[in-house]
Design a protein around this nucleic acid. Sequence first.
DNA 1: CATAATGATTTCCC
DNA 2: GGGAAATCATTATG
Length: 354
Amino acid sequence: MDEQPRLMHSHGVGMAGHPGLAQHMQDGTAGTDGEGRKQDIGDILQQIMTITDQSLDEAQARKHALNCHRMKPALFNVLCEIKEKTVLSIRGAQEEEPPDPQLMRLDNMLLAEGVAGPEKGGGSAAAAAAAAATGGVGADNSAEHSDYRAKLSQIRQIYHTELEKYEQACNEFTTHVMNLLREQSRTRPISPKEIERMVSIIHRKFSSIQMQLKQSTCEAVMILRSRFLDARRKRRNFNKQATEILNEYFYSHLSNPYPSEEAKEELAKKCGITVSQLFVAVSNWFGNKRIRYKKNIGKFQEEANMYAARTAVNATSVSAHGSQANSPSTPNSAGEIQSLVLFSFRLTGGLSSP
DNA sequence: CATAATGATTTCCC
DNA sequence: GGGAAATCATTATG
């Protein structure tokens, strides 16, 4: 914004020292008194230079007076001449401005978080994932989700109103400056290129302000996000149903209780934990379960029998004969006993160390 | 309120 | 990078 006065100023100064001025003056009017002319010119220049110190009304009046001054066309010519000399340097100075990588990063982030994207519907990726997790067994933390979403949309709303405000201010200012330039073009030569340049300068300035807005919005989102994740990092016990699902898998795969990625995903879905960040909960569960089971198989025997019996019942209800499965001391089906033995064997290092 | 249970994190290893 | 083991931290329980 300080570019504009500087532009005017530099012209003023350059003009004062212009060697061709006197010549133009001479051309403009026939006169005999050279000293008087110089005095005259000095006056005009003085008036131009000090016009910014005056009140608006005064300046307006003086502007009009200067505009009607007999020497105005001559001055204008001089200015045109100066312009022709300086325009090259102006053209070289500007041009090319590669898209700011920082700005792009912010934009991408805001888009990814759903702050900058289309209104609602899909919303943020995180919010969508969170919403997905509200289905199924893990519906107990929906309060956190709605809280998160509410805060996010609040941020989003602030961001958009601010952005709109900036946009509007930018447009207003641009038209204002353009009007000013148009007005000034009556007294000094202004090329379309210059106006263009001015506009781009204004836009750059405003986009730097916008960048600050984006920056702070990003920060806010990050803070919200980290708080949200922190809150979820706090321990949250699986509910009964989820534990049963996990246990069922664990004990029916005792020989190899290492669910594949797909199996884990499936289990996570069944247990109602869909948020990608919490997908590891299943892995954690199995990690903990394996180590704790191995540490004290006896303690888990009852549990193991229970789940084994359950799957055995399921199996026998399909395959007519269930004679062995009913023994109270060995409720496991043959397959489960085998699994258990194999797993124990494996855990005690039976395979690797003789 | 002490203790057990249990989910999460860290460290180390392959 | 994934798993085992140890450990931390929170939640459930009596």
